[in-house]
Amino acid sequence: MANLHWLANPGRFLRISNAVVPYLAGLTVVLLAYGLWRGLTAPHDATQGAPATIMYMHVPSAIMSMTVYGGMAVASAVALIWKHPLADIAAKSSALIGAGFTATCLISGSMWGRPTWGTYWAWDARLTSELVLFFVYLGYIAIWQAIEDPQRAGRAAAILALAGSVNLPIIHYSVEWWNTLHQPAGLLQGKTDPVLAVPLLTLLAAFFCFYVTVLLLRMEREIVGRKIRQLRLLQAQA
């Protein structure tokens, strides 16, 4: 019974999470709807034309793909240092969300690249490091699947996530050194036209709320899954 003790804490987490999720979900839907409406009805960008509409999916996906990894790395560090079970669960529950945003970033980028650069894929620095980030996510998910015991899998995955977080800046820098033809990021330097910036920032907020909502739901699922595992083990022993 001693190893069931930590469930007391997730119990409190679940109560708070269940109370917050409906509001977060509502906020996500409102922000998403407003951002899409403003973005899709805005006049098309003078230089890039209609394809720049893809930006409203591409840029939030790209920012979220890195934000989620950052959150995953912090949660992994907390899990390793303080052995907090919720941190472990948060890191695991983030992985699929992050991998998905990385994939949508790559797909939307390639759909944007075709009409503007004339190619679906270029071995440009940011595309390449985004692709590597996707592979890192896949490796992280794979190690969770490979080790059955959640405690051990969690610590192995945390070590991998931290190794990746040290490596990703180096990878990004090295790829940039290797090749660059991507346009510089201008969103947060105030250069973007407010007509584009309002829907873009709204959608970014929407994607972030989506991430938190789904993360809480996935964490709950993971907690329930672990309880099932514990109870089955106890029944098998009885």
Partner: peptide
């Protein structure tokens, strides 16, 4: 095989330089 999947992305800088 898993080892290769985990490590290969981290080899990118060495390969590039």
């Amino acid at each position: 095989v898993l080892l290769s999947l985990l490590v290969m992305p981290l080899y990118v800088p060495a390969l590039i330089f």
